[in-house]
Nucleic acid binder design. Structure first.
Lengths: 165, 165
DNA sequence: TCATTACGGATATACGGTATCCTTAAGGAT
DNA sequence: ATCCTTAAGGATACCGTATATCCGTAATGA
């Protein structure tokens, strides 16, 4: 069970976009160069963010992506689910239906409406994971970064992004 | 990001073993038949449980697997980590090191000892997931099953397992 | 001695993640 | 009006891992 590269890229891209002026668009090319990841592949993740309504893209020169709303209204869960999908981490294959000692009635009662005890526990953990991700917003990440990163680095990063507008 | 079949099988197998008499061994063959899953492949999951010290196997006729300790001393997390591994769900590729505006000093400071802000949030969610799994024991699962399943089904399941001793 | 069983290595197969390329359409600059 | 830039998304190739099976070995009890 593992989150893949695009999720990490998407989160870092959102952090960059959140630090920009609200009306500014940043193209895929710059986001890819800034993070050192393949542009064409990163583009897929950004498209997923766009479809989820987290960012919006605009065409033509000076085009690119920007956030659709303020960083305090975008959670980690929004980004993760946009790229990774909303499917639960645990899939119940309804293994109960295979029990050799089931009557036809009991077998028919093994439905998604009555999830099995194992699945309920696993889904509870899934909810705890999502709740944790939902509790952190991009604005929180920005605040953390502003103390984690030296002022010099912050200035240089902003300058680099300005040059490539 | 998805948990795979063997995890589900392992949990259900542990539930069965937990319901057995403490000194009784149940072979892979019966566990596979009872759950309707491929025996050879299930064997891999059981071996993982064995290596993790959750179950122990014994050879020869009347051999098989049994739990190494009481069901109230085995958590869901024990089982999940035994089969799925202990690797964190989010892997930080240290994307920071790719920033084009880093000095050599700053780049060298991007070490695992100082994880990046994004990874910290993802790992916090990972901990919430594991904490939730750790809070449920096999004994809790047994109790749930005893109320979920009809007395008749419980009796028939026990009888089926007895026949195949 | 023999049947049974866990254990682990080797292997085959299928699927999904990874990555790239290309075409299309749209918007801005000249 | 024309050209360049860019998002958008379809098609495709590659590779790694999950899935699944088979076999040999060793140990155990009947």
């Amino acid at each position: 069970m593992q989150l893949r590269g695009p999720v990490e890229w998407a989160l870092h891209c959102c952090a960059v976009l959140a630090g920009l002026a609200p009306d500014r668009y940043l193209p895929t090319r710059d986001l890819a160069d800034f993070h050192g990841v393949p542009k064409e592949y990163l583009s897929k993740a950004l498209q997923a963010l766009s479809q989820a309504g987290i960012v919006e893209g605009t065409l033509g020169p000076a085009g690119g992506y920007r956030l659709t709303r303020a960083p305090d209204r975008i959670t980690f869960l929004d980004v993760v689910e946009a790229v990774e999908g909303r499917a639960p981490t645990f899939v119940c294959t309804n293994i109960r239906r295979n029990f050799p000692c089931l009557t036809a009635t009991e077998k028919s009662q093994c439905t998604e409406a009555r999830p099995c005890a194992v699945a309920r526990v696993m889904w509870q953990a899934d909810r705890a994971w999502r709740d944790s991700l939902r509790s952190v917003r991009l604005s929180d990440l920005l605040k953390t970064l502003s103390t984690d990163l030296s002022p010099g680095l912050q200035r240089r990063a902003a300058a680099w992004l300005d040059e490539h507008s």
